[in-house]
């Protein structure tokens, strides 16, 4: 059983947010009861971007509040949706009249609470919702199924929507662009070791020393198969090939490649992974026009990584390159 550094389970998330604010006092501000995070200096005259979800995925979403990205982030308990009350209060706090775009990862609880908040805000606020469902491992033909999970592509959605919102774009334009990024993105992940739930102290599954779990999400659940491990090049190839196929990428296409650590994967490893992603893409004649590697959308202390590809256009490249200043992402 692994251990976490914490005082007590009930205050774990709140105290972590206090620390985030203390580390970045010029960027973010914590609001208590209900808990949410906003920019320290509110942005006026632009669409407000609000995101959130269960905790345990840090630096997502609280670490992505700031200029060029989110206006507010709403953290739930570990792996648990924030409440509709938190979402409503956060959205009300940051809407300066241009409306709100909510960016929501596709999980039943998150979608329900954000949609309820949106519905109740609509008599006084313009609210649009973008659902992020990029995880290729959970593709299903079943129409009654909840659909694909939302994972690391949310980073691209928040960055690009954040950049276009800063230009003063109206809410429907920000929403449409968010949906376009979702449609152009796909993610696959794998784990070398499961994560441990800080509430229960239990590890979500066990793997042998030569095994990986393929197609994991970001809540410690099993993926779609336990496979033999391999070299970085082999593991990356097993992720990139289905992504390229799903997105219908062709020779000459330009993509954004995001290598995302799932919590306990070392920077050295992520560096090698990004190198292999670029080599794999280059082998198919696809240009990784923009790349990013780091632990952004984590699954507590899971050892593993995901690869997200987003098919780019000139407009999307420009928005990706636009300045951003948040605790976790700055350029």
């Amino acid at each position: 059983m692994s251990r976490y550094v914490l005082n007590d389970r009930d205050t774990f998330v709140r105290q972590a947010v206090e620390g985030l604010e203390a580390a970045h006092p010029g960027l973010v501000r914590m609001h208590d009861d209900p808990l949410f995070v906003t920019r320290r200096v509110p942005a006026r005259g632009k669409v407000a971007l609000v995101s959130g979800g269960g905790s345990g995925h840090e630096p997502l979403h609280t670490g992505l509040v700031g200029t060029g990205m989110l206006d507010a982030a709403v953290p739930g308990a570990v792996f648990t949706s924030p409440t509709a009350l938190q979402v409503r209060e956060a959205a009300q706090a940051v809407d300066t009249g241009a409306g709100v775009v909510m960016i929501v990862k596709n999980y039943t609880g998150d979608v329900l609470n954000f949609r309820i908040a949106a519905e109740l805000l609509e008599d006084r606020h313009r609210v649009e919702v973008v659902i992020v469902d990029d995880d290729l491992a959970t593709t299903s033909e079943d129409e009654s199924a909840p659909g694909r999970r939302g994972t690391a592509a949310v980073l691209a959605v928040e960055k690009i929507c954040g950049a276009v919102a800063e230009t003063g774009a109206p809410a429907d334009r920000v929403r449409d662009l968010g949906r376009e990024v979702v449609a152009r993105s796909a993610t696959l992940g794998l784990a070398l070791e499961a994560c441990t739930n800080p509430m229960t102290g239990t590890r979500s599954f066990d793997l042998g020393p030569d095994q990986i779990e393929f197609g994991v999400g970001i809540h410690g659940e099993r993926g779609i198969g336990t496979r033999a491990s391999g070299t970085a090049a082999e593991l990356v190839e097993s992720l990139v090939r289905p992504l390229v196929e799903h997105l219908g990428l062709r020779r000459g296409d330009e993509v954004l490649a995001i290598v995302n650590g799932l919590g306990a994967t070392h920077s050295l490893e992520l560096g090698v992974v990004l190198r292999e992603v670029r080599r794999s893409l280059a082998g198919s004649g696809i240009a990784p026009a923009r790349s990013l590697s780091g632990s952004f959308v984590t699954s507590l202390d899971m050892r593993g990584f995901s690869v997200t590809l987003t098919a780019l256009t000139e407009d999307l490249i420009e928005l990706w390159d636009a300045p951003v200043r948040t605790p976790a992402l700055t350029w």
């Binding site: 209900p34 648990t80 949706s81 409440t83 509709a84 009350l85 938190q86 409503r88 039943t108 609880g109 329900l112 609470n113 309820i116 908040a117 109740l120």
Partner: peptide, 9 residues
Amino acid sequence: LGAGGTSGP
């Protein structure tokens, strides 16, 4: 709205 679960919200 501050409750967890599905029925509360």
